[in-house]
């Protein structure tokens, strides 16, 4: 059994953070809970409706579709960005002039604000003036993200991969750089294959950073708003209307604060649940592998 800590003074150091979080997150969240059980017509007048907004939302096709689109988007993003990030990190040089060149070129997309990324790809993909759209049209490929849902999805996915794979690469690269040379030398003496080195040395050592990468990419892709809003505005039709876009349309476009608050809470709970599952499962795997390896 772990000995009980007597000195608990460090908790006071957490107090400022707690206050900041209370003002910036907990109080707004409480307000959202209050809104979710009431209806308002503006002028700060509220009417009690109970759980009606939740019932309506859970039965609405609009919510189901937006939720499904959001989950599909995050799943596709993780399935592409995580393996691609690992592969690029493995291929990056470990010493020499190539290191700063690779690191800077990897960091560049991360420095660009979301709405600018959206604008870049919105113009890049246009058939009339965009390099990508025009080139594809010249090659005879029917590509128009403003009319074709598949093209819109492909554009947004490629844009997200372009924007955020670098984050996974940098995290994995940091994990790889922390592996001492002795591990590789031991593997070489044992005659381990390239795949074995990856499976038994590199992957376990990247476990922690991969957990952070998966969590960050999941949460960020699940909350994506600005880029698809700038590129497609949720269209064509509703094909790229993710939950975040739908939520803003409901809350600000239609001023339906009650249903929007109910949707926000369900959205929040789903993010909380999935992040907790990812965290628990991946940290559990990490502990098992480190116990097994020791």
């Amino acid at each position: 059994m772990i000995a009980k800590q007597v000195n608990q003074k460090a908790w006071f150091m957490v107090l400022p953070v707690f206050l900041v979080v209370a003002v910036s997150a907990i109080i707004p969240l409480m307000t959202v809970v209050n809104y979710s059980v009431q209806d308002t017509f503006g002028n700060n007048q509220f009417f009690w409706v109970g759980m009606d907004w939740f019932r309506d939302l859970l039965a609405s096709d609009r919510f189901h579709d937006a939720f499904l689109r959001q989950i599909s988007f995050s799943a596709i993003i993780l399935a592409i960005e995580i393996p691609l990030g690992i592969a690029i990190a493995l291929a990056m040089p470990k010493k020499g002039w190539g290191v700063p060149v690779c690191l800077i070129s990897m960091a560049l997309p991360l420095l660009i604000p979301w709405n600018v990324v959206g604008t870049i790809w919105q113009i890049f993909g246009r058939v009339d003036i965009g390099l990508l759209g025009h080139t594809l049209a010249a090659m005879g490929i029917d590509y128009n993200y403003t009319q074709d849902p598949v093209a819109a999805w492909i554009t947004i996915i490629i844009m997200d991969v372009w924007h955020w794979t670098s984050l996974v690469v940098l995290l994995c690269y940091a994990g790889l750089c922390s592996i001492p040379d002795a591990y590789y030398q031991a593997a070489k003496i044992d005659g381990a294959s390239r795949i074995s080195v990856f499976r038994y040395i590199q992957l376990p050592k990247m476990q922690r950073v991969l957990l952070i990468a998966v969590l960050l990419r999941f949460m960020d892709s699940f909350m994506i708003y600005t880029e698809p809003f700038v590129i497609t505005g949720g269209g064509p039709g509703n094909s790229t209307t993710f939950m975040s876009i739908d939520l803003v349309k409901m809350a600000i476009g239609q001023f339906d604060l009650g249903p929007a608050a109910a949707m926000s809470l369900i959205y929040f709970l789903v993010i909380l649940l999935l992040s907790w599952v990812f965290f628990t499962v991946m940290s559990n795997i990490g502990e098992e592998s480190s116990n097994g390896g020791s």
Binding site: I27, M30, T31, V33, N34, Y35, V37, Q38, T40, N44, F46, W48
Partner: peptide, 15 residues
């Protein structure tokens, strides 16, 4: 705190 639109049930929930 009227902007937070408190109700008795939600206040009870948080308490």
């Amino acid at each position: 705190l009227s902007w937070m639109a408190w109700t008795k049930p939600t206040a009870t929930f948080f308490i």
